[in-house]
Simulated assay, not measured.
Amino acid sequence: MQYTMPTIFLASGSPRRLELLKNLDLNVRQKKLPFTEKINRRLSSNKIAEEISYYKAKQAITHIKNDEILLTADTIVCKGNEILVKPRNQNEAFEFLTKLSDTSHSVITGVTMGIPNKLSTFSAETKVYFEPLSKQEIHYYVEKYKPLDKAGAYGIQEWIGWSKIFKIEGSFSNVMGLPTHMIHNYLVNWQKS
């Protein structure tokens, strides 16, 4: 039996998102586009991630080909009411990880998929629990892994995830940048329609 899905146009430069889609055995065409991300802090955290992914999709929709489905996404890290975006420098990365040490936080990814005039937006939330991080451990991680391209200043698939995250509630892939189970379900339903 042949298992085929439409080609995904991933409007993102993220190597992690590309890896996740390839792990779903999808054909992916990737292109990094220059997005301007604006955060509307009046919205709930889930709606912020969804709105940013939708805004990216509206900018990227003209780049898809006839046989492709667009995918845009945005991941945010929330510690209480504070949103930890991508750190601007190593000092801010150190500050973010200090805030996440010995506590829990939420990782929310908003995803928009579809074709012109038929876009769907959804989100997933995962709760992540960190053990205490010493200053030395934070410095080691920031200097070696340079997590300036990651919301919250960490990658769960890197050293910090394997050594300091002791529990998650929800999707692991969501913390990496895409809720793959939701994307797969979207594509299955797309083929039925």
Rank of each mutant, 00 (worst) to 15 (best):
K150V: 07
K150S: 10
A151I: 07
A151E: 10
V142I: 05
E125V: 04
L133I: 12
S123T: 02
S134I: 10
K146E: 02
F130H: 04
E131C: 10
L133W: 04
I138S: 05
V128N: 00
D149Q: 04
A124D: 13
A124W: 03
Y141I: 11
E143A: 10
Y141L: 12
A124Y: 03
P132Y: 02
Y140P: 00
E125R: 15
I138T: 12
Y141S: 08
P147W: 12
H139C: 13
V142D: 06
Y129I: 00
Q136N: 15
P132I: 12
P147G: 05
Q136H: 12
L133A: 11
E131G: 00
E137G: 01
Y140H: 15
I138Y: 09
K146H: 12
H139A: 14
T126R: 12
A124R: 05
E125S: 01
K146G: 08
P132W: 09
V142Q: 09
L148Y: 08
K144Y: 11
V128I: 15
I138F: 00
K146I: 11
Y140A: 10
A124V: 07
K150P: 09
E125D: 07
S134D: 10
F130K: 11
A124N: 14
Y145W: 07
H139G: 08
F130G: 06
Y145I: 03
P147N: 06
L133R: 12
Q136W: 07
L133K: 11
V128H: 04
P132V: 14
S123P: 07
L133M: 11
Y145M: 05
K144S: 13
V128C: 09
S134Q: 13
Y129S: 12
P147S: 10
A124K: 09
K150Y: 08
A151Q: 01
F130V: 09
K135S: 15
K146L: 05
K127W: 06
S134G: 11
Y145D: 08
S123I: 00
V128F: 06
E125C: 11
Y129R: 08
S134V: 14
K146A: 01
S134C: 13
V142S: 09
G152V: 13
K127M: 11
S134M: 13
L133Q: 09
S123V: 01
Y141C: 12
K144P: 03
A124L: 00
H139N: 13
Y140M: 13
P132D: 00
V142C: 04
A151P: 03
P147Y: 04
Y129Q: 07
S123M: 03
I138M: 14
P147C: 04
E137I: 13
K127V: 02
L148E: 10
T126W: 05
E137T: 14
Y129C: 05
V142T: 01
F130R: 02
D149K: 02
Q136L: 15
